[in-house]
Structures are given as C-alpha cells and as structure tokens.
Design a protein around this nucleic acid. Structure first.
Lengths: 339, 339
DNA sequence: TTGAAAGCGCTAACAA
DNA sequence: TTGTTAGCGCTTTCAA
C-alpha cells in the first residue's frame, strides 16, 4: 500500500526523505535508484530503500539529475507548420518514438514562418541544454538556417541547406517518382502523362527525374508533351483534365494526391472511369484522400515518420555517415486500386 | 563582436565566468540578468556585466534556474494520435502558443493507444516537474483517466471523464450542429436531411440535438425519417446518396466533411448539382477536403487550436471557472459555396 | 558495503 | 550598491 505523501502539491519527496526513512545516506539511495554497478549494496539495505520509495512515493527529479550529471536528455524539435497537415505530426511522431528509445525527450516548438518565434524557440531550447536540435519543415525544400542553430548539433529534417554543412534527412524524390511511374509501366501502360507541380522545388525536379528514369529503364521514350504543369492542388488536377485526355495518355502520374483528387473529379464529370479508361497514381499518401477516393488511390508514400526517426538517429550519431551529409529516405509505393 | 566561447561543445559559459570577467559576484550577475527589482545595480556595473555576457556569449541554464527557484516552466501534453490528422497538430499548436505566452514550454508525448507508453510519458513528465499536464485526444470522446495523472494538475482536452473531477475542454457539439443546420435554414431550406454517424459519441448526440434545436427554433418540424446513419467516412456518405435523394430533402447536413465528400461523389454520379439541386454542409472544416471540393464546402469548424489554448488557460487558472468543470468551445460556421 | 562531502548553475536572503 | 552564503536535488569521488 502506497501513501503518495507528495500527492498533488506540498513538498515533493526527495532522496533525502527516502534516506531518512530507510536509515541510510542519500548516496546509498542514489546508488540503488540508479542500480549503480560500482557500488555493491547489501540486499537487505536495497530492500529497505525500495520499501521507503514505495511508501513515500518517490520519483526522481530529472532536472536536478541533469544539472548534476552535466548533460540533459532533451532534444529540441522546431517545426514550421504543425497544424496544417498531418505531415508535421508524423515527423514529430517518428522523432518522438526514436528519441524515446534512446532515453531522450522532445521539446517541441511550432513556429509559423515567424522568425522571431523561431529565434525564441531556439534560444529556449539552448537554455534547456538540449542535446541537439531537429529543424523541420512540412514539405521538402531548401531553407536558410537560422544563425543560432550553429550553437548546438543540429540536423535538418525534410529540408536542406547547401553550404551550411548541416546534415539533412530528406525523402528520395527521384526514387519516389520512379516508383510511381513504375507502377504504371508494370500495369502495361506505354503512354504515361505526368502532371507536375508549378512550384520550383526538389519535388518538381526530383519526381520528374524519377519519371524519366523509369521510362528510360523500360525503353519507353520520353515525350515532353506528356508532362503537364498544374498548381499542386485539387483545382490544378481538375483544370488539366482536358489536357490529359487530349494527350492520349492511358495513365497519369500526378504530382500529389490532391492533384489526383481533382483529376478524379474531372474524369468523372466526363464520364471516364479510373482505372479502366485512365489509370492514375498519386504521391504523398495523404490518408484522408488516397485511401478514400473511389477507387482508392495507388500512390507513393512520403515517409515522414521515418524521416523524423532518422533525424534523431543522425543527430545521435547512430546512422552510417553520408559523405555529402544528405540522408535520402525511401518513398515506397502504396498499391490501391487506381491502376 | 562576439566570441561565443562556448560554441558547439566545450564547457558552456556560466554565471561564474561572467562574474569573473566583469569583476563582480555571481549574485550581481544574476540580478542584472533577471532585471531584479529589489536590488539596484549601478549603471556602470550593469554595463560591465552586459559586456561580459556579450563577449563570452552567455546563456542562462534554465534547468539550474528551475532547480533553484523550485518550480519549473514545463507543461506536459500527451496526445493520442498526433500523426493521423491535422487535428492533434492544431491542439498542440494552440497549447504551444498559449503556454509560450505565459512563459511555459511544452513537453510533448505521443502515445498511440499504447498504455505502457502512456504511463512512461506521464512518468517522464512528472520527473521533469511539470506544472501540469494536458491530456488530449484527437476526437471528442469520453475516456478513462490514467491513475498517474492525479499526481499533478491535469486538464482533459477534447475529451472528458465524468466522475474524475478533472476539468475538460471540449467543442460545443450541440451549438455546432445548430450552426450547421441554421446555415441551411437561412438559405431557405425546409426539408433538411441529417447524415449522422453510426459511432456512439458526444458528436452523435450533440450534433443531433443541435439539428433538432435549430429546426425547432425556426418552427420546422422534426422528421425522424430525415436522419440517416452512415459510417463517418467518404464511403458512408457515398452509400447513403440514394437514401438522401429518396428522402426528398433539398439540403443535407453531413456529420463531417468526409461524409460530405462521399456524398458529393454520389451526387455527381447521378448528375445532381451542389448546391443547385441539393445544398450540403459538413462539419470539422478539414482543410484538404472542405476548402478544395467543388464547390468548396460550407462547414462548421472544430476549433482545435482554441481548445488547446483554452486547455492551457484552464490549467493555469486563467479561465473563468465553470462549476461543472466542463469548458465548451464554440464551433463557428465556415461559409463557402455548397449552400 | 556504506557514508561524507563537494559540486552542478542558479537564486535569494541577509550583510556589508 | 554589491557580495556572502546557504541551499535546490542529485551524482560521484574518496574514505571509512
């Protein structure tokens, strides 16, 4: 039976209390609590200490411990748009799990493009003696690194900054683009259109490169007229429907799931069936959309969870070092029924 | 020009270093750093201290401060599904901003229905001497509170637990349901169907109550045959399309945006136009969907950001106390073009 | 096998 | 106006 003397408020019970209760020194308590190797504690003493702990409801003070031991178990994670999509959430989740696994705790800060908030957040993390910082964005892009980040170990997550020298963990856009296209090729399509984004980004160039690479590997000729640009949203996909049809393609690789969603609409309005008349694959694997469209959308996953987790590993020096400091994470195809 | 002696590694510069450099005592440094009221420091001394700080690149150690001052600036936030939807992210964002405003930092832990992880997370927070804990779920429901939460101040966020005595911040489902229905009534509709969820939940009963209440306020009769149940997903909305049409309704209030999305599909397949043939309103204001459907969906927002922020305020005792410990947050209508 | 004591970086009386 | 001192809760030599 526990007493939990410290309950909600009132002075928390400390090691000293335990020592007194058990009739030993704090050093001894510390030793049994941490199961120290060096010091051998008598079985009987150990018992008494544990009993006192149970009785009084002791819980170690992580902050005091950190101060004493000199290094904290915090890792900071600054995210740029936690509330917009589930993507940032997945990064956090992955980082969280991996950090946890190694005994670290995440200090999360959201900053919506607000430079002042960003600096405050980083300062806060530094003041908390974080082991390092993960700087993440919710979509893959090049960024300019805040000066203060150089005061600790930092790894860029889902973003990069050439010349900063900071390690970066990003999705392998080219491999992803290739995987998407390959799905279509494997289903026998020869004339495959690609709706690319209009926004300059690693996704724009990377996925295009992947598309071409897949075509090439299969001996299919690249036809520039088959790549059509569209705003990377539902509206964009809807608007290029006619162009897609006019292109004579039997399949289309969409820059993302939202574009695919718009295209579905456009196709449906014209009485066309997916995948019978036209096969489509998306990119992102955005659950609400991809899994619930009719028919469910075959797509390529942006592995945000993995990216977050890998970020932690890189920070902790657990990942095999890449000489270019660029860690590419695989984007796997998710097969559903649109091909 | 700064030297940043502590740079990435190597012993960080402490108050003692500053004191030595400025030729004063640490107490003095502490006073100028914290801008203490009581102690008046000579302008010249203050200068010297600031210069030393700039020169050496000093940054306060928040952990040591906490230990000394006795109370930490941490607030724990345990979330149950941070990666699934943007909802959890919005809660975190709101909590984050509000906590920040009051000088607190968020310790975030994600636990996917994993009871063990949950206990670990709470223990971790307690060990870090959190000021309190926000326990949140990503959709409004009744939960069973983990025992350990009673060891600190906690507030339930987007969930509740009758009998636990814990304050809870939740969306006002009834008011939201009423707002949604009212949109339709205001547009002149008299025969309004309601696609409700099949999942027992505060949303099921609350939104229905709101629907009836709106009808009643406008002198419209409630017709049980107009409320149709469906799985709260795209598929559910699609499947009840025929039933909706058969009901003769000129407008429909969908349990959520996903259902509305499915209904849109069903309607389109049948050649029906929204809103000309049938007006529809959703619920949730799930950005990817609601804002990008054609036509954009009028809906009611689930104010997750506000809920997170209010949670912090309740925890810190900044919100006017509710006698039932239930804090209802308003769900505003978001007008777009489906009505 | 156990304990005493110093120290982590900072704050807060209280003196000077 | 500034410095001295005693902690905060814990770890860690070093002695006993």
């Amino acid at each position: 039976m526990r007493t939990e003397r410290h309950s909600k408020h009132g002075a928390p019970v400390t090691m000293r209390d335990i020592a007194k209760e058990a009739g030993v020194s704090v050093a001894t308590v510390s030793h049994v609590v941490n199961n120290k190797q060096g010091a051998r504690i008598g079985e009987e003493t150990r018992q008494r200490v544990h009993e006192a702990i149970d009785l009084l409801g002791y819980r170690t003070n992580a902050l005091a411990k950190t101060l004493s031991v000199g290094s904290s178990r915090f890792i900071g994670l600054v995210a740029d748009a936690i509330a917009t999509t589930p993507f940032a959430g997945q990064i956090i989740h992955g980082a969280q799990d991996e950090a946890w696994k190694h005994g670290y705790v995440l200090l999360v800060a959201n900053i919506d493009g607000n430079k002042a908030a960003e600096n405050d957040a980083i300062a806060m993390m530094l003041e908390h003696q974080v082991r390092g910082i993960l700087y993440s964005t919710w979509y893959h892009r090049e960024i300019e690194v805040p000066e203060s980040l150089h005061q600790t170990d930092t790894v860029l997550v889902d973003c990069f900054s050439t010349g900063s020298g900071l390690p970066a963990v990003v999705p392998d856009e080219e491999q992803g683009g290739k995987a998407a296209t390959q799905e279509l090729i494997d289903a026998g399509h020869q004339r495959i259109a690609f709706i690319n984004t209009t926004t300059p980004s690693p996704a724009l160039t990377g996925r295009l490169a992947g598309y071409r690479s897949a075509l090439e590997s299969s001996g299919l000729e690249f036809d520039a007229s088959l790549v059509i640009s569209a705003v990377p949203e539902q509206e964009g996909g809807y608007e290029v429907t006619s162009a897609i049809i006019a292109s004579g393609a039997s399949a289309v690789f969409c820059h993302n799931d939202r574009v695919a969603m718009g295209l579905y609409d456009g196709l449906r309005v014209r009485g066309l069936d997916v995948p019978k008349d036209i096969a489509v694959v998306g990119f992102d694997n955005q659950e609400v959309i991809a899994a619930h469209l009719r028919p469910p959308l075959t797509t390529v996953a942006l592995p945000h969870y993995e990216i977050g987790a890998a970020g932690i590993r890189v920070l902790l020096g657990l990942e095999r070092e890449q000489d270019n400091a660029l860690y590419l994470i695989n984007c796997p195809a998710i097969k559903r029924q649109s091909v």
